[in-house]
């Protein structure tokens, strides 16, 4: 693989916990300055992969290089070149904002000449000017998140690993957070981010979908939508949505059916032909259709169709 423009190169990476295979021979490559999204349902192996890339877990087999450094044999050099934000907030709640920043500046050996400007930058970026002496534990989730990001990038890492960075954060804060991610990516930082928010996945340059430890799809958001949604997508609003789902799952001319909010999404070979067929099929079974119309697939549809195709459990909705 070409190492010059690749920030993260993973080849056949495997992680086993006893008999359980958490990550099953994953290969991927993230280019420099790219926002690389890592999608999958809970327990799919996203966090395990990201922890191996940060040198926190030892791979069972396979290879992973971050900034050209091998995570298994050079974990300390890797750590100097990366920033990491774990899934759970993990700064010191009993330290103030500036004490946390100073501590992590020390951990990353941020030089004396650079220190003041970096701390100022982090405080401004996190919007915590005037709250430098607040205890971190008292901050709202959005601020905590931005402070954690600030702490993770004080040493200007080339690669940033974010494990579900915006879970539990309000939409406005999520937006701000992503603005910061984009700014850093524009400056050449590779951002490797796991998420299960589909709207966030749309922000990524490239996506990898992972399910049960295996990569099931990869590409840009647009590519994924075009490539993996064979057929058209129909939105159906009707009575007795649960019964309708069961009926349609085995119905002729319907490739897949899943509940999305208060409606059903159906994957059909051709929308125009299916609209009439589905409406009559449901009314035969005593279900009245209120709305049926073709829609453009979202990443969520792609995601559901890919993960359910593997599990065979169409009723299970992996995305909250």
């Amino acid at each position: 693989m070409n190492g010059a423009s690749s920030a993260v190169v993973v080849t056949d990476l495997v992680k086993r916990f006893g008999d359980f295979v958490a990550v099953d021979a994953i290969s991927l490559e993230a280019r420099k300055g790219e926002i690389f999204g890592f999608l999958g349902p809970n327990g799919a192996g996203k966090s395990t992969t990201i922890r191996m890339l940060c040198g926190l877990l030892r791979p069972t087999s396979g290879q992973a290089q971050v900034s050209g450094l091998d995570v298994a044999t050079q974990p300390e050099q890797v750590r100097q070149n990366i920033g990491y934000m774990s899934q759970k907030f993990s700064l010191y709640n009993d330290l103030t904002v500036s004490e946390n920043l100073n501590f992590f500046a020390g951990m990353y050996s941020v030089g004396r000449s650079d220190l003041t400007s970096r701390l100022d930058w982090a405080i401004d970026m996190a919007g915590l000017r005037g709250r430098e002496n607040s205890f971190t534990g008292t901050l709202a989730a959005g601020w905590k998140q931005r402070l954690a990001l600030g702490c993770a990038v004080l040493h200007r890492p080339q690669v940033l690993f974010l494990d579900e960075p915006t879970s539990g954060v309000d939409p406005l804060s999520r937006r701000k957070f992503w603005d910061m991610i984009h700014t850093m990516a524009a400056e050449g930082v590779t951002v490797f981010v796991t998420t299960h928010y589909m709207d966030e996945a749309e922000y990524c340059n490239r996506l990898v979908l992972i399910d049960r430890g295996k990569i099931v799809a990869s590409g840009s958001p647009l590519e994924l939508k075009q490539k993996y949604m064979a057929g058209d997508l129909l939105l159906v609003e009707c009575d007795e949505i649960g019964t309708a789902l069961e009926l349609l799952q085995g119905a002729p001319g319907v490739d897949d059916a899943a509940i999305f909010g208060n409606a059903l999404h159906l994957v059909v070979p051709k929308a125009s032909a299916a609209i009439a067929a589905v409406t009559s099929y449901l009314s035969q079974h005593g279900i009245t259709v209120q709305t049926i119309e073709p829609i453009r697939p979202s990443l969520e549809d792609v995601f559901v169709s890919l993960t359910t195709a593997r599990t065979g459990a169409a009723t299970e909705k992996p995305i909250p």
């Binding site: 040198g55 926190l56 300390e76 750590r79 990366i82 774990s86 993990s90 700064l91 951990m107 990353y108």
Partner: peptide
Amino acid sequence: ERGTMEQLISTPVT
């Protein structure tokens, strides 16, 4: 217990 260890060991500290 407080979950701060994961962040700490992701830094180059020995």
